[in-house]
């Protein structure tokens, strides 16, 4: 009897250890608490160039993540990229004239959408469109412009 009981205890502690490990992976490693699971509202933003923005890239406001990029499509009539942003529903006081920009985190980091709040009294809601946008900075373009302006300076002298 005592032998079978100790065996049961061992099996029980093995299974408990397994579940603790799973729990650890879920909570500590992947941070379940802040994992947004698809709830929130969608707003669209049109950019001339989105650089290397990807689906699931963060959307931040004042540096705090308020949502994620939900989808990226190309509008063949206006030649623009249409990015739909899923904002978590607890951030429901974002003015509808906010400014959406595409930034790069660090020199080699990933790209993300940064929102600058505007002054409107109306807030963004499901299906709205952000009209004020700034495209991603493409490094080659900036270097090209820089070289071009340098060359013009040299000519005018």
């Amino acid at each position: 009897m005592s032998r079978s009981r100790s065996l049961e205890i061992l099996v029980g502690s093995f299974m408990a250890a397994g579940f603790v490990a799973l729990f650890f992976l879920a909570m500590q490693v992947s941070n379940l608490s802040s994992a947004s699971t698809g709830e929130g509202y969608l707003v669209a933003a049109r950019f001339d160039n989105i650089g290397s923005l990807k689906v699931r890239s963060p959307v931040t406001m004042a540096g705090v993540r308020v949502g994620r990029v939900h989808g990226i499509e190309y509008d063949s009539e206006t030649y623009e990229a249409v990015v739909s942003l899923r904002i978590e529903s607890r951030f429901d006081k974002i003015p509808d004239d906010s400014f959406a920009k595409i930034f790069t985190a660090g020199l080699l980091g990933e790209q993300y959408v940064g929102l600058d709040p505007g002054g409107s009294d109306l807030y963004l809601k499901e299906g709205d469109q952000i009209s004020l946008t700034q495209p991603a900075l493409v490094l080659e373009e900036i270097i090209g412009q820089f070289l071009f302006s340098k060359a013009q300076e040299g000519e005018s002298k």
């Binding site: 093995f14 299974m15 250890a17 397994g18 579940f19 603790v20 490990a21 799973l22 650890f24 992976l25 500590q28 490693v29």
Partner: peptide
């Protein structure tokens, strides 16, 4: 079938 996922989870957690 029951043990394997638990063992893998223990492996990963202890690895971290």
């Amino acid at each position: 079938l029951i043990s394997m996922p638990l063992l893998a989870a223990i492996f990963s957690a202890l690895g971290v």
